[in-house]
Amino acid sequence: MAGWTTVTDPILRQNPVTLQILGICSALAVTTTLAAALTMGAALTLVVVTAGAIISMIRAHLPSSIRLIVQIIIVASLVIVIDQFLQAFFYEMSQRLSVFVSLIATNCVVLGRTESFALHNRPLPAMADGLGNGLGYSLVLAIVGSVRELFGQGTLLGYAILPTVEQGGWYEPLSLMLLAPSAFFLLGGLVWAIRSWRREQIETPEYSLAPTRDAGT
């Protein structure tokens, strides 16, 4: 079914983060704990689905010269609503995410999908595409977030999984996992793993070794 692949494709085969290089900025900053990663994923999914629906509905009335500004304003308004909602009901989480919720407004996943998909499709497929991309993004965030939280603090969503030395257990937390570089290494490793499994995603190198001419002689 065509509608179904629109949702499932971006989750692995066309993942926005690992293949399309979209939305990496916020993908890394909020992944020190799984809870923050899931909140961020949910917020982004909501924004990209709603923005896709709205922009797809008005696409026939949108002159192409001002479409970028209109899209940015729609996305930014949605982000303000979500930011205010988080501040009202999940104040601690909104403090932890700080400016990164606002930065969804310039997240390339949102603008990339509205620009390349919602502008040319009917509202329902646009929402399905938004959902798929949002979920693909959330999946990457959740993987990176759970690895960093598990090995950095020995917990998952706040529950102790590996008892740390401080609490009388045996696990010595890897503090590197809480620092910036680990997120880059994990994401690099994730890209490597996905591309080794799905070989069609491998980029063709700009240069390659010339075949040796005297092979076999």
Partner: peptide, 12 residues
């Protein structure tokens, strides 16, 4: 290695 080409190695 193929999987690291481009984006992967850039991250590392």
């Amino acid at each position: 290695p193929g999987g690291l080409q481009g984006l992967g190695i850039a991250f590392i």
